[in-house]
Amino acid sequence: MRKSLVFGLFVLGCVLFLAALGATSEVRVSHFLAVSRDLSDITATLKLTDISFSDDARYTRNPSQADIFSAFQDYPGSIEHFPSGSVTPPPDFSSLGAPMKVKKR
């Protein structure tokens, strides 16, 4: 068999495999979208604000609700919870604007 044909078949095989993965993605995403309605219902009913992704420490559990991200918060000598504690940026409150006005007496 010609080498070019072998290469063409290899590329075609890869593309078809990717297309099959894409098709399974559609199925899995549509399943998730169905489940996400139930998840959103839980979020709305319990008024949750964060996902349970880093429950190592209380200051990494709800990143959107806290602004002090430092080590040793749980108790003196408590080790830093790497990487959750160090790669979590503080939430951005800049959009609130509202500069503080000082009234003259």
């Binding site: 604000t49 964060d50 996902i51 992704f53 990143p63 959107s64 609700q65 790669v87 979590t88 940026p89 939430p91 951005d92 409150f93 959009s95 609130l96």
Partner: peptide
């Protein structure tokens, strides 16, 4: 006050 938009943006950043 913490807006929902900011909650979602936090996860974008995380």
């Amino acid at each position: 006050p913490i807006l929902r938009k900011e909650i979602i943006r936090t996860y974008d950043a995380v």
